[in-house]
Design a protein around this nucleic acid. Structure first.
Lengths: 336, 336
DNA sequence: AAATTGCGCTAAAAGGTTTTATTTACTAAT
DNA sequence: ATTAGTAAATAAAACCTTTTAGCGCAATTT
C-alpha cells in the first residue's frame, strides 16, 4: 500500500512552489506566465511519477464535483436502461461521472434521493420527474443547480426538457390503426398526471375524433400488481370486443401479452409505446412507437453541459419526433 | 440561493466549540463524555436549522467516501439491470451510494473505469470482471480496497466472489433435455475464458457424457454483431439438425430466436441461461436456468459491507443454486 | 500536602487542493 | 537616479470537516 503522491511532493521534488504546479496542471501556465521551460519540466515529472490530484480536495476547494445525478424511473426497464447507458458514456468523455438511482415513481423516494445527491454536491441533474416533484425541482433551480427533465415535465415550471413528441406518436399510431381498417380501438394508460401520458392520450383521442371513431380508454393504477393489470386488461379487451389496442407504455403492453397468454384470448392488433426486445420476437411481431433514444440522450447532456458552463440562459424544451415501426401485429388489413 | 450552514455556525450560535458539535454529531458524545444536556441542546438545534455536514469535507478528512463502485458488463441487460437495482436499494439503506459504469466486456474501458473510481476514492468495488482484468483487481487488493467479484472470478486469485452454480445449472438443464427424449442437443457459448462460461460448458458436457450423447458446441465472438451471430446460429442448428439447444446466455438465446424468425426455420427445444421477459411471452415459452438474483445481490453487498467494516479476513466464495424453470419449450416429449 | 484521576470541553492540526494577493528581480522609461 | 512596468514565481488563505492532544478544575488517592 504505497502512499499517494501529493502536489506538495512534486513541488518539493522540483524545488518550486505548490502554486506553480497547480497552475500548470490546470492549464493556466500561459495565463499566469509560467515559463515554458518550467512548464515542461513539471509536466514531464508529473507524467513520470503518475501523479493524480485528489479529486475530493479539488471538489472541496472548487465546489464542483464533476458528478451528475441521474434520477430515473426504473433502471431495469430497457427504455431507461438504454438512455442511462448512452448518457453515461457521453458524459464520461467530457470528464463527468454519473451517479444514478431509480425512483420507481415514488415521490418520497425521489425527494430523498435528490436531497442526498444535492448534499453530495452533484453539479447537475437529469430527472424523470414523478408526480408531485415540482417543488423539489423548483428548489434546485432556485439554488442554481442545473436540472434537465426528460420524458415528462411540469407545465407550470420553466425548465429545460427533452422528450419525444408523444402527441404525434400516439396520433400517428392511432391513425395507422384506423387506416388498417380497425374499428374498435382501445387505449391503455396509467392513472397519472404525467405529461407524457396526457399527450399520448390526447394524440389517441384526436385521431379517434378525426376518424369518427368511438374511444375506449382503460387506465391502470401505477402501483397495480402484474396480476391486477392482467385482469383489468382481459376485461377491457374482451368485454369491449376490441379489434386493436394502443398501449401507452411498453410494460403495459407486456402485461397485455401476458394476459392473453394466461387467459387464453387472442390479442387484437397491438401497438406499444417504446420498443422492447419482446415485441420483435413475439408472434405476430408488434408495431411500436419508437422514441429516438440516442437523440434524447445526446440532447439531454448537451443541454446540461451548456448549462454547467453557463453558456445558455433561456430554458430549452426539445421535442423530438417518434417513429412508427410497423410490424406484423398491424399489417393484416381488416375489411369491415 | 441561501448560504449553506456550517458546523462552525452551529458552534458559534450555541457558544461552544466546533469539536464538541462534531463529536455529538458523530455519536461520540458518550465516549467523549459530553454532558447529556449539551448533547440534547446541540441535537435539537441541528435539527431545527436542518444542518447537513459537507460530505466532501468529511470524506477528505476521513478518507471514506461512502460510495461504492459498481462495474458491470451492461446495464441495459435486464439480468445486470436487476442486480444493479437490488444492490442500489440495499446499500442505500446502509448509507452508501453507488456509482456505476458498464464495461461492455471491454478490458481497457474496465481498467480505465476502475482507475477513475479509485482516484475518486470509492470505498469498495463490486465487479463483473472481463477477461484480462486480473492484474487490476490484484492491485486493488494490494491497495487494501475491498473488492467483491460476481458472475465470474479468477481461479488464480483469492477474491471474494458471489455467483450462481453454473455447472449444476447447465448440468440440470442438459439432463432435463435428455430426459425429455432429445438426442441432438447443442450448446451455444462465447469465445471467452470467463469462468461462468467454462462452468456452463462443463455442466453441459458432463450431462452429455452421462447420457452417452454426442456434443455439439458452437461458440460466438463476444464482439460479433447480431447479424453474424444469427447467421452462425442458423447454420449450427440447421446443418446439425439439432432437436434441442442450450444457450449459455439470454442474449444468445434471443439472437437464436431472432434467427429462427428471420430465416424462417423452426426452433428446436430451447433452454436459456438467465431469464428474460421475452422467454415468458414467446410461443412456446422458453425454459430457463434462472439465477437467484436477489440472493446474489444480497450476498454481494453483505460481504462487501463486512469487508468495509473489517469484520472478515478470509476470502469468501459463495456459490448459489440455480433454478430450472420448465416452460413449454421443453415440455413436449420427443419419442425417438 | 502532593500527586493522580476524571470530567467536560476545546484549540489547533490535518486532510489536499485552488486561488488571491504579494514578492522578487529585472528592464524600460522619465 | 528614480519611477513604472512586467515577468515569473510564491506564501498564505480558503474550502469544511474530523481528530489529536491537552487544559483547567475538582475530587480522590498516596
Amino acid at each position: 500500500m504505497k502512499k499517494r503522491i501529493l502536489i506538495s511532493d512534486i513541488a518539493k521534488a522540483l524545488g518550486i512552489s505548490v502554486t506553480t504546479v497547480s497552475f500548470i496542471l490546470n492549464d493556466k501556465a500561459k495565463e499566469k506566465r509560467i515559463s515554458e521551460a518550467l512548464t515542461k519540466r513539471v509536466l514531464d515529472y508529473v507524467k513520470k511519477v503518475g501523479y493524480k490530484p485528489n479529486e475530493l480536495a479539488k471538489s472541496l476547494r472548487t465546489g464542483k464535483t464533476k458528478i451528475l445525478g441521474l434520477i430515473i424511473e426504473d433502471i431495469s426497464n430497457p427504455f431507461f436502461g438504454n438512455i442511462a447507458r448512452l448518457i453515461e458514456s457521453k458524459v464520461y468523455e467530457q470528464g463527468y461521472r454519473i451517479i444514478y438511482c431509480s425512483t420507481n415513481n415514488d415521490v418520497e423516494k425521489a425527494k430523498e434521493l435528490i436531497q442526498m445527491f444535492y448534499d453530495r454536491q452533484v453539479d447537475g441533474f437529469i430527472i424523470t420527474p414523478s408526480d408531485g416533484l415540482e417543488d423539489t425541482v423548483k428548489q434546485l433551480q432556485q439554488n442554481n443547480i442545473p436540472v434537465v427533465l426528460f420524458d415528462r415535465y411540469f407545465p407550470g415550471l420553466e425548465t429545460d426538457y427533452v422528450g419525444a413528441d408523444n402527441f404525434q406518436g400516439a396520433f400517428d399510431a392511432s391513425n395507422h390503426l384506423c387506416q388498417q381498417g380497425y374499428r374498435r380501438i382501445g387505449f391503455v394508460s396509467l392513472y397519472s398526471d404525467q405529461t407524457q401520458m396526457k399527450e399520448r392520450s390526447d394524440g389517441y383521442m384526436k385521431a379517434m375524433d378525426n376518424n369518427k371513431q368511438q374511444s375506449f380508454i382503460q387506465k391502470i393504477q401505477m402501483d397495480a400488481s402484474d396480476e391486477e393489470a392482467m385482469e383489468l386488461l382481459r376485461e377491457f379487451i374482451c368485454e369491449n370486443r376490441l379489434d386493436a389496442v394502443l398501449f401507452s407504455t411498453n410494460y403495459l403492453a407486456i402485461s397485455g401479452l401476458k394476459a392473453s397468454k394466461k387467459f387464453n384470448f387472442t390479442m387484437p392488433a397491438v401497438i406499444a409505446f417504446d420498443d422492447h426486445t419482446v415485441f420483435k420476437l413475439v408472434e405476430p411481431a408488434i408495431t411500436v412507437v419508437s422514441q429516438p433514444i440516442k437523440d434524447i440522450a445526446e440532447n439531454l447532456i448537451n443541454i446540461l453541459l451548456l448549462r454547467l458552463q453557463g453558456k445558455i440562459k433561456a430554458t430549452r424544451r426539445m421535442v423530438l419526433p417518434c417513429e412508427l415501426k410497423v410490424r406484423e401485429s398491424t399489417k393484416v388489413k381488416v375489411t369491415s
